[in-house]
């Protein structure tokens, strides 16, 4: 199963409210791989995540995205999730009145396309919560309502564990976490990795990569991937910041943008 192409993004351009944010992104993710996408604020990281999942606000203007060989552009977000895509949100939405337990059960049912026996659901739920060091009472609460930053991020990983996707796109899952919460979340992600799973970690900082080692690191800047490398690239960014990379590739990009 490993080495199978899971996600193939070619020349992706995305606009938000008429403003072009992604200017031609290319990326290939195989099963079993962990890719980190790093970049300064405003480089288009969250746009990439939301566009891949099909948020209606993000209009794809050019390019293709193949997931397991299928073009996903015509697919609604729920169909993309059913196909095995998962987005861990940077800012999970709170939904008053809908309890975590019902939400997770509906989601699991939807992803499978059939009812899940309650007993099986319970076992999966309790095991995943235990893995993430979450109190069992957590499932009683309304979705993300009144959750702390750490609880929200853990709840995202809980959903990932229960939905068992083939591709997990994690949008700044490390933001807003203290060091203990970060470790718990990272351990949770590590426990969920498998040869079938491809992961795209979107992050501003290198610190999450101390816990989860990516095979590939890409730097997104002004809507394009300007440099790709191995884990060492992230360490280099940690030491030097984004400035040297931007100094090297940024002006060329700006010039290319003007030409285009």
């Amino acid at each position: 199963m490993a080495d199978e192409v899971l996600l193939k993004i070619s020349g992706l351009k995305v606009a938000v409210d008429g403003k072009q944010i992604l200017n031609g992104v290319d990326l290939v993710v195989n099963r079993g791989e962990v890719h980190a996408i790093m970049g300064p604020n405003g480089s288009g990281k969250s746009t990439l995540a939301n566009a891949l999942m099909g948020h209606p606000k993000y209009a794809i203007t050019e390019g293709t995205v193949l997931f397991k060989g299928q073009n996903i552009f015509g697919l609604s977000p729920d169909k993309r999730a059913q196909a095995g895509m998962f987005l861990a949100f940077q800012y999970p939405t709170s939904i008053p009145g809908v309890t975590m337990v019902n939400f997770l059960r509906q989601a699991m049912k939807a992803v499978r396309g059939e009812d899940v026996p309650v007993r099986e659901f319970r076992e999966k739920l309790l095991a995943t919560m235990k893995l993430l060091k979450m109190d069992e009472q957590f499932a009683r609460r309304y979705v993300n309502e009144g959750f702390s930053g750490g609880e929200k991020k853990r709840a995202e990983i809980l959903q990932m564990g229960i939905l068992d996707p083939d591709l997990a796109i994690m949008d700044e899952t490390d933001s807003g976490l203290d060091i203990d919460a970060l470790r718990t979340v990272a351990e949770g992600i590590n426990a969920l990795t498998s040869p079938k799973l491809g992961i795209v970690l979107i992050t501003h900082y290198q610190r999450l990569l101390n816990y989860i080692t990516p095979q590939f690191v890409h730097i997104l800047y002004q809507g394009r991937i300007i440099q790709s490398g191995g884990a060492e690239l992230a360490l280099q960014l940690e030491e030097q910041g984004y400035d040297p990379v931007i100094a090297k590739y940024g002006p060329a990009l700006a010039a290319a943008g003007e030409k285009a």
């Binding site: 999942m53 099909g54 948020h55 209606p56 609604s76 977000p77 729920d78 993309r80 999730a81 059913q82 998962f86 987005l87 949100f89 999970p92 939405t93 939904i95 939400f103 509906q106 989601a107 939807a110 992803v111 979705v143 959903q159 939905l163």
Partner: peptide, 12 residues
């Protein structure tokens, strides 16, 4: 809110 649920495979 709708997008969040849809992103979890739940039909609109």
């Amino acid at each position: 809110e709708l997008f969040y649920l849809e992103a979890r495979a739940i039909p609109r």
